[in-house]
């Protein structure tokens, strides 16, 4: 039940063996929907819990940004999973993933409007009422914006966090991706986000395709993202940073090098 601290990695079955052998590891994240609410935990994850490694369930399908009320069964699942791993907190996204009876298959951006703030705040409060632990919210990477934004990203997020008391799960790769694709300065966004509310930080790799930067989680972490991690830490060091990798897993040495680079950029002890 220890709050996330230091450098962690997203636990995935494909890299369970690699993660199990990281001697300094103190926290991981697991996709909440991949766990059975009634247990048992996958063996690798259970072994980490026995070692005292903090496990944070990370929801990806709650659709807190949907105009419809969040599905209570999905919230209940997240709550039970949080208890199953004795989590100190859980996290989800400021996004929607379905509408009109169709699944989008990924996280979609909200219009940055008052109406959307109201909808997401209502859903976050519904979730918080049922969750046994605090909730942290993650802004997403988006390839497009809605045409009628009324708020900029910093104001939009700050209003949601202020109204809900939720923590901020800041994904530095998403900050980089959005700024690059919009032609904005990512440091300017860091200057305006409520960094004191950060619960932990995500870092992931991506790649450019057809002139757009895609936050793929299947490519190496670019140097620019690591530099932005350094810029964030110079402003206010976050308590914990987590590497997300979701496919095209590289050899163990390459993954260890990414974790080490993240630790160095953030001034945390290496975990490898």
């Amino acid at each position: 039940m220890t709050w996330p601290h230091g450098v962690g990695i997203g636990w995935r079955p494909e890299i369970a063996g690699f993660v199990a052998e990281l001697p300094g590891l103190r926290f991981v994240e697991v996709v909440a929907e991949s766990l059975a609410a009634g247990g048992p935990l996958p063996a690798g994850l259970a072994a980490l819990r026995e070692r005292g490694v903090t496990v944070v369930p990370h929801g990806v399908r709650l659709s807190l940004g949907g105009a419809e009320p969040v599905d209570p069964h999905r919230v209940a699942h997240l709550a039970r999973v949080a208890e199953l791993v004795d989590a100190p907190l859980v996290s989800e996204h400021v996004a929607f993933v379905r509408a009109g009876g169709l699944e989008a298959g990924h996280l979609l951006p909200l219009p940055r409007t008052r109406e959307a703030v109201t909808a997401v705040v209502a859903n976050v409060r519904r979730a918080q009422a049922e969750l046994p632990v605090p909730l942290a919210l993650e802004p997403i990477a988006a390839l497009f914006d809605w045409p009628d934004d009324e708020l900029d990203e910093a104001d939009f997020l700050t209003e949601i966090l202020d109204a809900t008391g939720a923590g901020l799960l800041l994904d530095v790769a998403n900050v980089y991706a959005n700024a690059r694709n919009r032609g904005d300065d990512p440091h300017a966004l860091l200057d305006r986000l409520p960094l004191e509310r950060i619960s932990y930080v995500h870092v992931a790799g991506g790649a450019e395709r057809d002139g757009l930067y895609h936050d793929t989680h299947t490519d190496p972490v670019p140097a620019e993202v690591l530099e932005l991690v350094g810029a964030l830490c110079a402003r206010r060091p976050p308590p914990a940073l987590l590497l997300e990798r979701d496919g095209h897993y590289p050899p163990a040495a390459a993954l260890r090098a990414e974790l080490d680079a993240l630790a160095v950029a953030a001034g945390h002890p290496v975990v490898t």
């Binding site: 929607f96 509408a99 009109g100 699944e103 979609l108 409007t113 809605w146």
Partner: peptide
């Protein structure tokens, strides 16, 4: 918001035209 989100998802996964704007 509900109708606009539904229209956008239909665009992304069901071949509906891109919403105006």
């Amino acid at each position: 918001l509900a109708a606009r989100q539904a229209a956008l998802v239909a665009t992304l996964v069901a071949g509906a035209p891109v919403p105006a704007g």
